[in-house]
Design a protein around this nucleic acid. Structure first.
Lengths: 339, 339
DNA sequence: CCCGCCCCTGAAAAGGATTTCTTCCCTGAG
DNA sequence: CTCAGGGAAGAAATCCTTTTCAGGGGCGGG
């Protein structure tokens, strides 16, 4: 490896001078030029490890997401990246795979590599532990999911409100038995979307919301994946009185639910389907899917901006930014009579 | 930050001993225990920067891909990650965004951070420059796309063969005027798939392949993105004698092509559509899409395994592994009469 | 003409972990 | 009983860069 020493020797100066050339110190033009030339000839690239070790900071920020195959998170990642690039930072992506253990390992790496900051979409509300990061004073921003006890900046989606609007939309379209497939019990997004669903039921149906046992049986917790959504939908369809509409709390599970529906010989809008979060290629799906659109890109962008503020030390108080969702009514919730 | 010195002081030993406890040197059991306890109490996590700097190696491998929003690459990333995890390595992902400049920056980072190795799906065949990596003796594996002049291990897809099989399938289904939307002229994947298309035309049509000018006008270079595919399809449909089938060289452009088709009031299989690479949620698309399936996950897995071999020094000669594609005939290429 | 100040430069320390080198002590064999 | 050998632990060097400190030279002002 070619080091700053080699360059210094080649240019006939001290290592300190070479460093100054690259970091903007006071060096006479002629000398600077000869250093630059020597560096180019030798193919010198500063060792970022040594640099970060010495400066106690790096220009890399970590982004930990739970599912790299979910377009929601890749779009979010793009938002983070674009915002970071604008200030010369680079982003490295860590896929925790909804696994708290893997996530812990990546958190160790983020700390160990002395990254400048980290944006986390937590794998679990209760079991994700950000405290080591906090203890090190590392800038942290939570995105999409807020870990239970962490005092960090956060960028969220108005899950409950979105869930409420979605469910109300189904009810008003004329569906009578609206079910809900939500995510794992541990996740904040699951719970909030479910809370929105419940609140809409209460609001629209009043107190005569019927059999509470039946109401409970219409709620399913799955894993935010395609297979989980499919299994949950199969269970719902097997009920003695199956639902005539379903509010699915994320995009991947919606795909699974649609598969299960098709296998059972049914289809929207006969059974209403509403997805929380965009299904990519939604434009190609027939009937087109009603969705609650999430500002995934902006979620990422905002999180990155917050992190950069925090890193610059300009943000004093903790902030929580909540972004709005938008209901996009399409064919899949046209109403039970439109089957 | 709590350093090895702090732990040493707390445990009443030297830093060297602490290091030995964590890296498997000879330390008496009692002392080792007290060190471990002190470390736990202080919340000590070794500074990976310092460690890597000293050891001249890290346990992180870089993965540079051109489009994080393309499911093909995320699936590939999963393959890499799973293989790496198995040996205790971690993967950080860099999104070059098909941009050679961004890619160069990430290559700098990979080198500067002294990562253990790197897997690259190059943004450009001609302009991607892996030579700095080679010069440093860093283990490198090219995946999916082979940079022009690089002597590196590679894991590829049999693009030409796949393109040939796909095009032949369209011709045999009865389509007369088969067009091709391929990727940027600079990319190896574009060229090879196009070559397959051409070779199939020659093979099936013999020498009477008609007007060479028309043949050329049926070929479009786009950018591997949705919008590019749509624009290319619009151009094709605007021809005086529009094609009655199209072979699209990647999944995203296929989505765009389908959109353009729909806007023009047409649909498969009246106009045959065949996608090179899976379109996610393909099962939800009607009519279902004929695709050439790519072993994206295995591509990643194999690349990682190759890289690990190379890192271990056990692979002497350069290897190029070529994985097979599979044609999955579905409804979208049923034939022109099936419209 | 001299003094003081500023600019440029090099020497050396710092940053945190690993590893070599050295020392010390204990055990076992002759 | 003595000596060789080996295991355990500390001191110090090392990895590469940045940054502080100190010194030297030139220039302007008094």
């Amino acid at each position: 490896m070619v080091t700053i020493q080699d360059v210094a020797r080649a240019a006939g100066v001290s290592p300190a001078t070479v460093s100054r050339v690259f970091n903007g110190g006071n060096v006479t033009a002629a000398r600077a030029e000869s250093v630059r030339q020597a560096a180019a000839e030798l193919g010198f690239a500063p060792n970022r490890l040594a640099r970060s070790l010495r400066k106690q900071q790096s220009s890399v920020i970590g982004l930990i997401i739970p599912d790299i195959e979910n377009p929601f998170f890749t779009s979010l990642a793009r938002g983070v990246e674009d915002a970071a690039q604008r200030t010369g930072m680079s982003v490295v992506l860590c896929n925790s795979d909804e696994d708290v253990e893997k996530e812990r390992r990546y958190i160790d790496i983020v700390m160990g590599e002395q990254m400048a900051g980290v944006i986390v979409a937590a794998a679990s509300r209760d079991r994700t532990d950000l405290s080591p990061l906090m203890a090190r004073g590392m800038p942290v921003v939570a995105v999409d999911r807020r870990p239970h006890d962490a005092d960090v900046d956060a960028v969220m989606v108005d899950n409950q409100h979105g869930g409420e609007v979605a469910t109300r939309h189904l009810l008003r379209a004329g569906y009578q038995r609206v079910a809900c497939i939500t995510g794992p019990a541990g996740a904040s997004t699951s719970e909030e979307r479910l809370a929105g669903y419940r609140s809409a039921l209460r609001g629209e149906l009043g107190n005569d919301s019927g059999d509470p046992a039946r109401a409970a049986s219409y709620i399913r917790h799955a894993d935010f994946r395609v297979e989980g959504g499919r299994a949950a939908m199969q269970e719902l369809l097997a009920l003695p009185e199956p639902p005539d509409a379903v509010f699915v709390a994320n995009n991947l599970m919606t795909v699974g639910a649609l598969q299960a529906l098709r296998e059972a010989g049914q289809a929207p809008p006969g059974v209403g389907v509403l997805s929380f979060g965009d299904v990519p290629w939604a434009s190609l799906v027939r009937p087109s899917l009603t969705t609650v659109e999430l500002p995934s890109y902006d979620l990422g962008r905002t999180a990155a901006e917050l992190l950069l503020q925090r890193m610059a030390g300009s943000a004093a108080l903790l902030q929580t930014v909540v972004l709005r969702t938008t209901l996009k009514p399409r064919e899949s919730t046209a109403g039970p009579s439109q089957a």
